[in-house]
Design a binder for these strands. Structure first.
Lengths: 337, 337
DNA sequence: GTGAAAGCGCTAACAG
DNA sequence: CTGTTAGCGCTTTCAC
């Protein structure tokens, strides 16, 4: 039998004070006499009173809720970021409402706008929408922070993990192992991260390595599907857009009878916890999720506090060489000419 | 320059009607003349008006937000459930606020109670708190449904994936492969699922198999840490509480020089997407996340609609035999006696 | 069909 | 220090 919820008025009445006093006590205002404060807390305890968050939100004009829009919860890297943000949010007495676009760039604008109505601030993880769309979201006057996608709007907060250098290292590593034909398994087509990684991967050309882009998408199955093209192209190594695709391509390569790394080397990106558990352990690039989460929250909190968005925070990262990369099994093919 | 948000009053004024009419139009009330309806929608469009969700919530007494408390976002199985719930919630025009207890049973009561203040209903995923604590949460008069943990309170909704039969099949499978010493890598100590799975695993005794429980916890690293105990106990197979631990134990076994499945067979539980991608592919038990998510949302929606909690929904599941289980490498050890 | 007005529960001036 | 009062923006009787 659910008892009716106690209101501030009831507490005021049983404590014999005004509702303003009750409000002050719960706001921790110092200007309340110890005697009244005690009567109020006692009455509240007795009635099991808790301030109504919605009423509070209406009066205050803020909800203590932050929205989080992610591309796909099926990606452990994304979940890792959420987890860290959750921790930060909780410490700051905020709640997170999470939404997943299922890798659909088209839905970002609508979902983001809708989400923005309900929250104090919005965090966009690797969004693929046009720059104007993202900038428009900031036009609602609430803090919007974009993670892992560069934006130049001065109204948007921006936190980036820059994996360019790490991927170039990875490329050099593969070149030094003798690989001469390397595939790049692409991420989502409109993804900023993909464009960026692809650019870094093309540094392989500097080492005289031929690099073949293979259509992908970002998910486990996209990795699976890429294996055939990789083999068909005669590549001896594949750099996958992320760890998830790396897992997928490794599985499919094996199904096609290719061994990793003996026949084909594979690398990922993000360094999800599983990367060090699979067989062979995955060569990849650290995702720095903890730091990214912390930086993101710091930025959100700052903007909630009225600060203008600071300059973008860029986190450098590094490659982690494990067992999924090895020497090229074949001599370099003779070029026609 | 963020323009001020339009209110219902402004719309009423520019449309030349009362705010009640505007409210009716947005509520889709049929009792508004086409003429006024048109003037209102036009004014709203012009002012870029959207009803203020918080004000609406206060007046209506509901937020269209559902809380979700999960043990650990690091578990892909948990993320899978969230993903499906997210889909259902979106279809029903509800938002989800997600919280993670980080496998801490102590925090469930507090976090759950706090969350319950802000939401219309609460979903608890595999909670480990005492039955009375969970029942108490239902005492707030809002729908509470518990997933993957049996509860007998008539106030609580309950959705379960019953893996008992599947695990007994798995046990029989291992026995038929000749294994005579099998380890069970335990999940979180107060977990209902763990108790249940352990009970099913003990059916190995019926096949004359000795089964050794090994302390675990549910996370990847808990799996890793279990490997040594498994080997020390001379087990030729290990049934892990979940896939994540199975991945961990496989990695650690390999590090200890044991091959899977040649030296040690490994099984998991949940059938996360990666289970079919790791090497060797993982023998496990289907988690039926999609169905569990759908059933859970159906129950939440029903209870939000005022229905009493239905009887528990129990989903049967099945084992999936893959490559991580194989014949026992050794003859049965001679028993002392 | 439409409007006026009384809340929903809380906060924050403003008086005293 | 404490109380009174006017909102926050919307919904919903209750009259007309």
């Amino acid at each position: 039998v659910p008892k009716e919820r106690a209101t501030i008025r009831m507490v005021a009445q049983t404590a014999g004070v005004s509702i303003a006093t009750v409000s002050r006590v719960f706001a921790g205002a110092p200007s309340v006499s110890a005697a009244l404060r005690h009567r109020v807390t006692e009455a509240a305890r007795q009635l099991d009173y808790t301030p109504h968050p919605v009423a509070r939100s209406l009066a205050l004009g803020r909800t203590q809720i932050v929205g989080l829009l992610v591309p796909n919860l099926a990606n452990p890297s994304v979940c890792g970021l959420i987890k860290h943000l959750l921790g930060e949010a909780e410490r700051a007495d905020h709640r997170l409402v999470v939404t997943d676009t299922d890798d659909d760039p088209e839905s970002e604008a609508a979902v983001g706008t809708s989400l923005l109505q309900h929250v104090d601030a919005l965090i966009l993880c690797a969004p693929q929408a046009d720059a104007e769309v993202l900038d428009a979201l900031a036009g609602h006057g609430k803090p919007v922070v974009v993670v892992n996608r560069a934006v130049d709007s001065p109204r948007l907060g921006n936190v980036l993990v820059d994996d360019t250098a790490a991927l170039r290292d990875l490329a050099a590593h593969l070149a030094s192992l003798g690989h001469r034909r390397v595939a790049y398994l692409r991420g989502p087509s409109r993804s900023w991260q993909d464009a960026r990684r692809w650019q870094a991967v093309r540094s392989l050309a500097e080492h005289g390595v031929e690099v073949t882009p293979v259509e992908g998408g970002g998910r486990l199955d996209d990795g699976r599907r890429g294996a055939e093209a990789v083999l068909r192209a005669g590549c001896t190594a594949v750099i996958a857009f992320n760890d998830l695709m790396a897992f997928g391509v490794m599985a499919a390569l094996r199904e096609h009878g290719a061994r990793v790394p003996d026949d084909v080397s594979v690398t990922g990106c993000d360094d999800v916890p599983l990367a060090r558990c699979v067989t062979p352990t995955l060569t990849t690039v650290r995702g720095r999720l903890r730091e990214a989460g912390a930086a993101t929250w710091r930025m959100v909190a700052g903007m909630l506090g009225g600060a203008a968005p600071e300059r973008p925070v860029v986190l450098e990262t590094e490659a982690v060489i494990r067992d999924s990369t090895g020497p090229c099994p074949r001599p370099a093919p003779v070029r026609a000419g």
